[in-house]
Write a protein that binds this DNA or RNA. Structure first.
Lengths: 118, 118
DNA sequence: CGGTATCCGCGTGGATACTG
DNA sequence: CAGTATCCACGCGGATACCG
């Protein structure tokens, strides 16, 4: 291709078919709540209630759904203590930590840009 | 905090209020089609028709809406030639290029991870 | 070619109530 | 505390038609 192309970072093929694994996973991790939950978990292991407070505005339904999806994707680890009252801890898996390392700079940039522009 | 916290990357405050500028912008740039359009534009200036093909599966309505939003956010530049037939070029602004530099590694990682896992 | 306008189905996601 | 279950509205987004 003859366009200048200064940003090609070794991603050979950028045409993703609708419904392909990459697009599906991308939708999960870039979803409205997915981003906020992952960013919250970047601070370390957290409980259900903490996550609800940190992902401000999320409903119980969406928190459950988001966590299940990210868990199935292999990015989030769930550990339940069989105590009463129950205690459940959520944390990032090794893969999740890898991903969040790329996500945090992006979120930081957005927050920064929103401040400069807004 | 006593958790290990190896990922704190100088983002002091991570609790974003619903509807705040950061959350709104984050929703734009992490939206289903926003990501694909930005990634497509990372390859350089492109026309409407090219973008439609690259963001495979997008409708005309969503492409128009996505481009307008990203343009209003200051990440995308639009340049229309007053010719017949009309020709309109879309490209990243300087800010858009900054952002996409952070976005591409993330998308690359997701594509890679989807391949290893899926 | 590069859009805009309109209609409308349906899935996302909020609210509420209930459970182990 | 940490969820599940159910109901339902509303807006996202696709399809279609049309315009400059």
């Amino acid at each position: 291709m003859e366009v200048s192309d200064p940003l090609d970072s070794s991603l050979g093929e950028r045409e993703f078919a609708p419904g392909c694994a990459t697009r599906v996973l991308l939708d999960h991790v870039t979803s409205k709540w997915g981003v906020l939950v992952l960013v919250a978990l970047a601070d370390g292991t957290q409980r259900w209630g903490e996550l609800r407070r940190r992902a401000t505005g999320i409903s119980e339904k969406m928190l459950a759904q988001t966590l299940k999806t990210l868990q199935a994707d292999g990015l989030v680890h769930r550990e339940a203590q069989p105590t009463i009252p129950p205690r459940v801890d959520y944390s990032l898996t090794e893969d999740g930590r890898e991903f969040v390392e790329l996500l945090l700079p992006l979120v930081t940039w957005v927050a920064d840009y929103a401040k400069r522009s807004g």
